[in-house]
Design a protein around this nucleic acid. Sequence first.
DNA 1: TGGCTAATGTACGAAACGGTACATACATTG
DNA 2: CAATGTATGTACCGTTTCGTACATTAGCCA
Lengths: 207, 207
Amino acid sequence: MVQSRDAERTRSELLEVATEVFSEQGYSGARVDEIAERTRTTKRMIYYYFGGKEGLFLAVLEAAYRRIRELEQNLHAGDLEPVDAIRRIAELTFDHHVDHPDFIRLVSVENIHRGRHMEKVESLRELGAPAASVLEDVLARGRASGELRADVDAVDVHMMISAYCVFQVANSATFGFLFGRDMLAPDVRERNRRILGDIVVGWLTAH
Amino acid sequence: MVQSRDAERTRSELLEVATEVFSEQGYSGARVDEIAERTRTTKRMIYYYFGGKEGLFLAVLEAAYRRIRELEQNLHAGDLEPVDAIRRIAELTFDHHVDHPDFIRLVSVENIHRGRHMEKVESLRELGAPAASVLEDVLARGRASGELRADVDAVDVHMMISAYCVFQVANSATFGFLFGRDMLAPDVRERNRRILGDIVVGWLTAH
DNA sequence: TGGCTAATGTACGAAACGGTACATACATTG
DNA sequence: CAATGTATGTACCGTTTCGTACATTAGCCA
């Protein structure tokens, strides 16, 4: 293979393909050889750039979470009324999850391994805060105006939204099999998106 | 090892240990040798009774789902008012999930493999119906009395409840890491259980 | 331009892993 | 109590899989 060298391309191509393979097959199920074969480089480069299979997985995790964080920062809901802001946050989170199934599956994989890998990545430690603080602000405004209930905090709300959104992607196979409803089909997706908004608003405005 | 024979014990011990190992390590991560070593029998018996690693996993899945079905049938909410019944169903589902983490993790594993295994188990095909029909009944009563909203069906409600409950177990590692809240700690668990009830009731009674 | 380092390719090794051949002991039944 | 099939143990095989030793090339800089 005669091809001009491009360290950055090699590295990022490995990351991209590894993201796919790990999210499709899990950590143990993913094969180093398969990842290499799907790129334009060789297995050797995985060891050169990432040290090994686990190092590659850590890099994949970090890159995926970094992308998420960027998207969360675009989540400016400060100019909306509390109730509208809550619905908007829920809907954007929903879209974001459904549009990034690889990332969600990666999170599932990491959970099966009890978060053993992510603990090793220092940069992931401070990643929860931003998502919570946006919600915190909206909740505070809603509590002040009396529109939103006061007995829940931002983490409670974020958990509920995450749970619903993660489920759409992470459990679509078993749920679809058992209930014959494909959560990723466009019309179902649209319906569930609206339902999530109804749930969060109904919950937080009931008091 | 001098030990009287007991086919049933051998079989069930293999199933029990395999459930643990598969849910801890995933399908590919689980080692046939490790499963065997953790029992009082040998690897040979896995092939004798289950044909191989995949056969064992299928048997584990089937046994796990069967246990779930049994518990769902104890879910008699017919004698409660619709709103109370809904809350009760949500809370029992919650307890059930949190008390059976192995099963939930198994479902995660199966989803990573896109449900490829469960499709092969005929007896799992009809498993969704019972859970939905209990809810269907309650919803119908609530719609008739005007207490519950009419624009959602049993599968919608079941999905919401499942999503919240599954998340408690399946994502506790990453969520705990990112937000410093251990969803399986007794006090948090109790709180989330109540919150789930509030969510479902708030949602379904808002209209 | 020549040399030096970063980047890449090839071929191979050792251990792990799923699976099986073969031998054998137990228990049931006639 | 013999006979037969079920149940179990041991030792081993072939492949897969992660990882690496060694060779080589491309481009940059003195």
